[in-house]
Amino acid sequence: MTEQTFTKEQLATYNGEGKPAYIAVDGVIYDVTNAKGWQKLVHHGNKVGNDVTAGLAKSPHGPRVLAKLPVVGKLVD
Rank of each mutant, 00 (worst) to 15 (best):
Y30R: 03
G27T: 11
A21W: 04
V25E: 08
Y30E: 11
N15G: 03
Q10P: 00
N46V: 02
Y14S: 05
V32R: 10
A21N: 11
Y14Q: 10
Q10N: 04
V52Q: 07
K40N: 08
V25C: 11
Q4L: 14
N50A: 15
N50W: 09
G18D: 00
R64D: 06
G45H: 10
G55M: 12
N15F: 02
G27S: 10
P63L: 00
L41K: 15
V42T: 15
K40V: 11
A67F: 02
A35S: 14
G62I: 01
Q4M: 12
I23P: 01
H61Y: 14
T53M: 11
G62T: 04
P60G: 08
G62W: 07
G49V: 12
G18V: 01
A21L: 13
K8E: 04
H44G: 00
A57E: 15
V42F: 05
T7Y: 04
K40W: 00
P20C: 04
Y22R: 06
A67G: 10
V25A: 13
T5M: 02
H44D: 07
L66N: 12
T7R: 00
N50G: 00
V65A: 08
Y14K: 11
L66M: 03
G45M: 08
W38L: 13
I23F: 07
K40S: 14
K40G: 04
N15A: 04
P20G: 03
N34P: 01
Q10E: 15
N50K: 15
N34S: 03
E17H: 11
K8C: 00
V32I: 10
A67K: 15
A35V: 04
G55F: 11
L66E: 11
G37A: 14
K19D: 03
D31C: 09
G18Q: 06
A54N: 12
H43W: 09
L56G: 09
K19R: 01
T53P: 11
Q10F: 00
G45R: 09
G49T: 11
T7D: 04
Q4K: 15
N15V: 05
Q39K: 14
G49A: 06
A21D: 02
